[in-house]
Amino acid sequence: MGVKLNSAELTLAHLDLDVPEELRPSTLRRLGLRPELDERIDALPPLKGWGLRQTAIGLLRLYRRIRPEAIGNRCGFEPSCSRYSELAFRTKPPVTAFRLTLSRLHRCKPGHGGTDMTDLELSE
């Protein structure tokens, strides 16, 4: 007899997903879970000040709070596109971050996915 978990108890540690790697992030999101990179980016502290970088990050975080669930649970990439953009604005000059964001959005299509940290690194 299997152990039943409620959604609050369900974590990545409890799952052994047998899906292709490019479907893993969207599958986790559909189950109400966030992939590891999403969790790590969400845990980053807000930046202080009111510059372009801070404003962009604040708007991205606001977007994630108010967007409809149907939009938030379908991204096929890890990290999600908005978190990728946040990381770009945290680690690159604003013009480069904007270019990376547009490039990522261009790659974000149904049937594509997996872990994508093109041109970015998340420090430990």
Results as ranks from 00 to 15, higher is better:
Ala97Met: 09
Cys81Phe: 09
Arg64Leu: 05
Lys48Glu: 13
Gly111Ala: 09
Leu37Tyr: 10
Arg104Asp: 03
Arg74Met: 13
Leu17Cys: 10
Asp42Met: 03
Cys81Lys: 02
Leu44Pro: 13
Asp42His: 09
Phe89Asn: 06
Ser123Val: 14
Pro20Met: 03
Leu23Gln: 12
Thr101Phe: 13
Gly2Ser: 04
Leu60Ala: 15
Phe98Ala: 15
Phe89Pro: 04
Cys75Tyr: 10
Met117Gln: 00
Asn73Trp: 01
Gly114Ser: 11
Val19Gly: 08
Phe77Arg: 06
Ala56Arg: 11
Glu124Met: 03
Lys4Ser: 11
Leu52Gln: 15
Leu37Asn: 04
Leu120Pro: 01
Gly2Pro: 10
Thr55Arg: 11
Gly111Ile: 04
Leu120Cys: 01
Leu52Arg: 15
Glu86Val: 11
Thr101Ile: 05
Ala70Ser: 13
Cys81Met: 07
His112Trp: 00
Pro93Lys: 15
Glu36Ala: 09
Asn73Met: 08
Gly58His: 09
Leu31Glu: 02
Ser103Gly: 07
Pro45Thr: 12
Pro20Val: 08
Thr118Asp: 05
Arg90Gly: 07
Pro79Trp: 06
Met1Pro: 12
Thr115Phe: 09
Ile71Asn: 00
Pro110Ile: 00
Pro94Gly: 10
Glu39Met: 03
Gly49His: 02
Pro94Cys: 14
Glu86His: 12
Val3Gly: 00
Glu124Pro: 06
Glu36His: 04
Leu44Ile: 10
Pro110Tyr: 03
Glu124Asp: 14
His14Ala: 07
Thr115Tyr: 04
Asp116Tyr: 10
Ser123His: 11
Gly111Gln: 12
Thr96Tyr: 09
Gly72Phe: 12
Pro79Asn: 05
Glu69Phe: 13
Ala56Asp: 05
Ser26Val: 07
Phe98Met: 14
Lys92Gly: 05
